[in-house]
Amino acid sequence: MTSRLLCQITGFLTIIIALTALPFFVGPYTITLMIGMLGYVALAIAWAMFSGPTRYVSLATVAFFGIGAYACAVFNESLPYPLLLLVAGLIGLAVALVVGLATLRLAGVYFVIFTFGLAELVRQLVTWFEVNITGTLGRYIFLPVTPEGIYWQLLALSAFAFAISWLIGRSRLGLALKVIGEDEVVAAHCGIAIARIKLALFALSAVIMTLVGAIQAPRWTYVEPSIAFNPTISFLTLIMALLGGANRLMGPIMGAVPLFLLFEWLSANFPNHYSIILGLVFITIVFVLPNGVLDFVEKGLTHRITAAAKPAEVQK
């Protein structure tokens, strides 16, 4: 068991090191592609961190992503860069705590609707503030961050998010979450502090999403609410995590990487049919792979193994 663990950790570190060295070997377009991909990998991991075990489907991804992007736009002239990220993360944390305290008692479809509304609410609040208080809507971000710099930051963030998910999965916290996901009443009777655990996870996942927004925003130079709070981001994150399997450690990555590449390929080659094909992909995922690719593959394998084993049993 320990040697297997060692293997896993070595493999993880090797991949991270290889990815860190990537910018020295590939062209700028690949970097751009990797930035987009890692952005979604981090978002999907963060999303699955909370929504996977608890089964609370959240559409608030872009609320936090947008808060990060906006925080970056607001403070990019007044704060040094690392501090900027810290402040953005703290704002995301504060919002997540307030929102989480107020809403994590909601369940099922109410929670979905609420989180969808949250993104719009934050966007309208930002707009209101900018219109009535500052009198500008668009904000400029002129930061000397190179695409490579953004890539490395997103890589670090993704690795961090992955490591955290892994740790949670192995801890008592992970077990508690699974129980909550199965049955909240049972969980409460087992003495699990449901509200506190849900809140902690929600906040952690929100901070990671906020940081993705803050790291990516300098690439746009200009930020306004319609750019920062684009609801597509929430939907794409959700579908990526679902495709991979939100309950598994590798799930979000297995969903985000192929889907991102597919989207990129579609938009490069079928720019006029993108939305139609995207819709079909969504429907297919929900119908064919409701539990994700990993689950599908695993079940397929077990099925085949049992099928192969059966004749032998009969002979006995």
Partner: peptide
């Protein structure tokens, strides 16, 4: 060579990179 940026800023950035490099 025409791309749809789908009204997304990130997509504009990527499409322009694609046009220039690919």
């Amino acid at each position: 060579v025409e791309y749809d940026d789908r009204s997304s800023a990130e997509e504009v950035v990527r499409a322009v990179e694609r046009l220039a490099n690919e």
